[in-house]
Write a protein that binds this DNA or RNA. Structure first.
Lengths: 89, 89
DNA sequence: TCCTTATTTAACTCTTTGGTTAAATATAGA
DNA sequence: TCTATATTTAACCAAAGAGTTAAATAAGGA
């Protein structure tokens, strides 16, 4: 994956909000979709972008697919940011 | 400004690399442009996106325009990221 | 098996993005 | 003033993004 995938995934407000929602625990695709004024298909695509970036993981459970946050990937972003702020000039 | 502008600006690899270059001190548009295999016009547009997001500041000095990093804006991103990692569930 | 629900995938549209070249602007110097 | 240099802006183009609706897939239950 890498930083590029991560940053691209984080550049969309809906995707960032999805991550925020998942901070509170796992949610099904449907539960996530209810919070946004777009179609389920659109949300599904956002989820696949986040999954591609490994920012979320999914588990099928019967009829539902549950998504959960994988915050470990954010470490790389944090490192890049602190590198930019610190060790200045 | 806001997080959205910042994240959008950070989503492009050339723009991130420009910020990395500026970590070492101010550089003119031309000096920045030399490091990338794209036209000066393209670099100029990247610079204007970064400036729009207030991630860089510019100062004209004679024939040259110098750009410098404004890392303070990154604080908001850091906060958002730590919020996502910490205070979990 | 058939029907309903949950979710994704396909096909398509519209907008945004990142690049190009050419023209415009700003400044220094002969 | 004329010319050369530094940089941006304008006009354009192709590719990527994000949305839509409709069809496909997956699973549960009558």
């Amino acid at each position: 994956m890498g930083l590029q995938n991560t940053m691209k995934a984080l550049s969309d407000p809906i995707r960032r909000e999805i991550l925020g929602m998942l901070k509170g625990g796992r949610l099904s695709a449907g539960e996530i979709g209810e919070h946004f004024p777009v179609s389920g298909a659109a949300v599904s695509k956002h989820l696949s972008v986040l999954k591609e970036a490994d920012l979320i993981r999914d588990t099928r459970e019967g009829k539902f697919i549950y998504y959960e946050l994988n915050a470990s990937v954010l470490e790389e972003v944090m490192l890049w940011l602190t590198g930019l702020k610190g060790e200045g000039k």
